[in-house]
Every structure is written in C-alpha cells, then in structure tokens.
C-alpha cells in the first residue's frame, strides 16, 4: 500500500510595519476629550480611515473607565485598532487587542529610569535618507505619502491634494493643498514653497490651517519651520 504524499504549499507569515497615529489621553479625561473635539472640529475627517492606537498608560483605567473611554472614541468615529499600556486584567475580548513593542516615531517620552534605551529607536530618529521627486503637479484628491525622507514637487500642489513627508517638503510651484512635513517626528523638517496658499501645514505633528494663518503670507514665497512648539512662517526673499 502506498501513501500519497500531499504536497502542500507551505504557509508563509510575513511581517509588515505600518505607521499608526497614537492617541495618549491624559487625566482629567473630560478635558482631554474636549481638546480632541476641538481638533476634530478644526479638521473634520482627520481621524477617519487612519489606523489609531490608544496609549492608556497615563490613564491607568479600570475596566469600566476603559469601556467608557472606548465608547467615547467610538461616538466620535475614531476607530481604535489596538491598546497600549492597558493592564491585562482590564481587557475584555471585545476590546481592541493589546499592542506592545511600538517603536516611537513621533514625540519621544522621557524613558523610565530603569528602562534601557533601545538601540532600535535610533534609526527612527536619524536623518531621513531618500528623497522623492515629483516632476509635475499634484492634483486635487491625490495624496503623496513618503515617510522616508524629503519630497520635492516641481509643479503645484492643488487645493485638496496632500503631501506627507518624513522629512522636508519643497514645492517649486504654488502650495494650495496640505503639506505635512516631519511626520515621523522630525522637528527640524521644513516646508518651502514659491507661492503660499495652503489649506493646512504641519511640521512634526503641529499643524495650522489657512484660517489660523490669516492672509499675511498668502501668495508669497514662504518657508515654514518649527520653533519649539510653534510654527514659524517666513518669507523667502
């Protein structure tokens, strides 16, 4: 008797890394939620379709508190894909899974005294290396996401278009859409453009909308940089 040997394609499991937005609520939670609402109101749709992880380590919630918090986020259409820093005892099966080992890519918290700084954290902070060059214009509805370095656009960035760069953003035409520089946590990233009519600019997570900026710099060649916690605009000439 022969036994048929079944050849079966071997299963492969691959790892893939994604960049998620981390929300770290602080106490009192009520105030924090109010701030969150202000952000959502200022830029509607900011949280939709983004992978979001809630870091509740500062909150140290009980099971019911955590349930309330998750419900509050759900009410705001913020979908949490994972929880960080929650005690195992407060987790329920219907809650998002606990996520560990996240490598900081944005604001760096001061490490605990007993924690050894991870060598792996270093590359995320080193200067970005590759640059992306876009020869034409970025049209409305298009989104250029390049977390590895600078983005240079030779044409315009239209109203409703978006550039997200790990490093700086250089636009030789007019900036009429959104430019988000230093998205992986580079406070020294900058935005340059020949004609400034942006809808939104952001550097290292700090952002300003056209409304916040007023009309002083409209139409001018501008560079945007970060000074501590404030966004600075300067004309280029």
């Amino acid at each position: 008797m022969t036994i048929a040997v079944r050849t079966r394609p071997s299963l492969r499991f691959r790892g893939k890394s994604f960049l998620a937005l981390v929300l770290a609520p602080t106490v009192p939670l009520r105030d924090w939620l109010e701030d969150l609402d202000a952000v959502s109101k200022g830029s509607p749709g900011f949280f939709t379709d983004r992978p979001i992880i809630a870091d509740v380590s500062a909150l140290k919630p009980s099971k019911s508190e955590l349930k309330f918090f998750l419900a509050a986020l759900k009410m705001r259409d913020i979908h949490i894909i994972g929880l960080e820093g929650a005690a195992a005892a407060v987790l329920d099966v219907d809650m998002p899974p606990q996520i560990n080992g996240g490598r900081p890519a944005g604001d760096i918290e001061t490490p605990d005294l007993d924690a050894v700084p991870l060598p792996a954290a270093a590359p995320a902070q080193s200067a970005p290396t590759t640059a992306l060059l876009i020869e034409g214009s970025v049209r409305s509805g298009q989104s250029i996401i390049h977390t590895e370095g600078d983005v240079t656009v030779l044409g315009h960035v239209a109203s409703g278009a978006e550039i997200v760069a790990g490093g700086s953003i250089h636009i030789y035409g007019a900036l009429r859409g959104r430019a988000i520089a230093g998205c992986t946590g580079h406070a020294n990233a900058r935005i340059f453009c020949r004609k400034f009519e942006a809808e939104l600019i952001a550097v290292d997570g700090l952002y300003k909308t056209a409304d916040d900026l007023g009309s002083k710099y409209r139409g001018q060649p501008i560079q945007v940089s970060l000074d501590g916690d404030s966004i600075i605009l300067k004309t280029l000439d």
């Binding site: 970025v138 049209r139 409305s140 509805g141 298009q142 239209a158 409703g160």
Partner: peptide, 8 residues
C-alpha cells in the same frame, strides 16, 4: 478644483 481632480 473638480477639474483639477479629473486631470489627476
């Protein structure tokens, strides 16, 4: 703006 989207 809609035309710009279409051009894209």
């Amino acid at each position: 703006r809609d035309s710009d989207r279409i051009i894209g």
